[in-house]
């Protein structure tokens, strides 16, 4: 009897494991499709690379930051895809990293969930020049993903409904 119970329990565990693996595979496949969509939105800018930022919604707020270089004589387009987000997040773009207290906020976007958004470096440069007197141009930007806290989230063992990702695809004008 004990053995039957053990087998049943293990079989149940195996099924749960298989379901989780299935969900993760689907999650990855969705991201691959969304990357294609984000890449299409780059045109006519030339694809330079992508950065998928993965996270799990937790009961507390989190911030994840990605540094991107902007070189002289070059215009850039950033394509953000938020279709793998179970909840909304906020994207903030700054001139410096999060250790600098007086950094300049160049752009703030919410409503990322379910959308593909485009931001261009020319727009960021204009804001930078207007907010910082004497500033010439941006040489890098810091994309900050502000991930809000979600009550009841499983902080240590996240479930699929807590998993999220933002796909950022970068392109430059040739």
């Amino acid at each position: 009897m004990k053995k039957i119970l053990t087998i049943t329990a293990l079989f149940g565990l195996a099924l749960v494991f298989a379901q989780t693996a299935d969900d993760l595979t689907e999650f990855k496949e969705d991201i691959a499709k969304q990357k294609v969509e984000a890449k299409k939105a780059l045109k006519p800018y030339r694809y330079d690379g992508s950065k998928v930022t993965y996270f799990n919604f937790k009961t507390y707020k989190q911030v994840k930051e990605v540094e991107i270089y902007l070189f002289n004589n070059t215009d850039y387009r950033f394509s953000f895809n938020g279709k793998s987000l179970p909840n909304d997040i906020t994207i903030k773009i700054y001139d410096q990293d999060k250790t600098i207290s007086d950094r300049v906020l160049l752009k703030e976007v919410s409503g990322v969930q379910g959308n593909n958004l485009l931001i261009e470096s020319s727009e960021l440069n204009k804001t930078y020049q207007s907010k910082k007197s004497g500033a010439e141009r941006l040489k890098r930007v810091f994309v900050s993903y502000e991930i809000p806290g979600v009550p009841g989230a499983q902080n240590k063992k996240p479930t699929m409904k807590e998993r999220g990702a933002v796909i950022l695809v970068m392109g430059y004008k040739n």
Partner: peptide, 21 residues
């Protein structure tokens, strides 16, 4: 967790972009 990115990350330009610049 491979689905948890570092808090601070970066993107390096492709060799083609560097050559183009």
């Amino acid at each position: 967790d491979i689905f948890e990115s570092p808090d601070v990350d970066y993107h390096l330009p492709s060799p083609l972009q560097v050559a183009s610049i």
